[in-house]
Amino acid sequence: MIRAIIFLLLYSYLIPITASNNALIITQITDDSPLTNTAKDIIRMAYQKLGINIHFLRLPAERSLVLTNQAVTDGELFRIDNINLAYPNLIKVPTPYLVAEHMAFSKTKQFTVKGWESVKPYRICFRIGYKVAEHNTRGFNIVLVNTNQQALHMLNSNRVEVVILDRLIGLNSIQSLGFKDIKMLTPPLQTTPLFHYLHKKHKKLVPKLNTIIQEHRQGKVLNY
């Protein structure tokens, strides 16, 4: 029954259902962007090599983790290392396949970024479930929103001073929203490898997926 509800959600997100209900549901926590699309291409390729159909479902970041941990959905497209410490039913495919660059974006402030303490003096914003930002900004002046687009709208209307986003997701979102006054500050606050996660009921797939990702990495440096 629960999986039937999820498939109805897939329809509502305009993701076509052409395979059987045995297809795995992999959640994505960001809208399609160069980073997300690259991740989807790699993970889709890996499952195709195993003869497994998958569908991607866009969900809010925190809800995605809860549903995958409960086996309502089957896996996470990409997450940072050790997310399974908080969600113990998730198993990490050990080889990272992307690198995220966590950047500060601002409309009114210009400064050289020197780690997370650089943004502490400012009113900052990022989406709920952005674990790297949550962990590194404890005690800061934070505004949480549901989506990256909401964060950028807050910044563009001068309601916050700094927004934290992945480099490619941020640049793509700014361009699509037409916000010409928002600039990316450098260098990155932090870079982190990204991993694919599955619910533990699919643990037999982990070594097979890991081998495919390792083979892919040998032919291409996955730093986007």
Rank of each mutant, 00 (worst) to 15 (best):
I26G: 07
M1H: 14
L85D: 13
K180L: 09
V99C: 02
L50P: 01
L90H: 05
A86Y: 09
I25W: 00
S64C: 05
H55S: 15
K203F: 10
L189C: 04
I169A: 15
L67V: 02
V99G: 02
L65F: 05
S118D: 13
A46G: 04
L165C: 12
Y87E: 07
L155C: 10
G75V: 15
A71C: 02
L155F: 11
F195C: 01
I83P: 03
T186S: 06
H202G: 12
L177I: 06
I6E: 13
P207H: 04
S157N: 15
N158H: 10
A19N: 14
R3Y: 00
Q28Y: 00
R44Y: 07
P88K: 15
L8A: 08
L35D: 00
R79C: 03
L177G: 10
P207K: 04
I182K: 02
Q28R: 08
I212K: 01
P34M: 10
T137M: 06
G75D: 12
L171V: 09
S64M: 07
L8E: 07
T95I: 03
Y224E: 00
V221N: 15
A100G: 02
S157V: 11
L65A: 00
N53C: 07
N223R: 13
Q214H: 00
Y224G: 03
I91N: 04
R63A: 03
H135A: 11
I6R: 03
L50I: 04
L185D: 01
K109H: 10
I169F: 06
A19R: 06
R44I: 01
R159M: 11
R63P: 00
E161R: 07
Y97H: 07
E215Q: 10
H199M: 01
V132I: 15
P207R: 00
K220E: 14
V221T: 12
I42M: 03
H202M: 06
I17W: 09
K131W: 12
N136H: 10
H202W: 14
L67G: 05
K220S: 08
M1N: 10
K120S: 15
T211E: 09
R127Q: 14
K49E: 13
I43P: 02
F126N: 14
T38G: 00
W116R: 05
H202K: 12
I80Q: 07
A133M: 12
M1D: 14
S64D: 03
I42H: 01
G170R: 06
T18P: 00
E134N: 14
W116K: 15
I54D: 14
L59V: 02
T73K: 09
Y122W: 11
E161T: 08
L185M: 08
K201M: 10
N21V: 06
I83W: 03
Y197D: 06
N172Y: 14
P207V: 12
M184G: 01
D41L: 02
P16N: 05
T211K: 05
E101H: 08
F7Q: 08
H199W: 04
S33A: 07
L57E: 07
V221Q: 10
S33M: 04
Q70M: 09
P207M: 00
V72T: 09
I212R: 06
I91T: 09
S118G: 11
I25M: 01
I26L: 07
M154T: 06
F7L: 10
G75P: 15
Q150G: 09
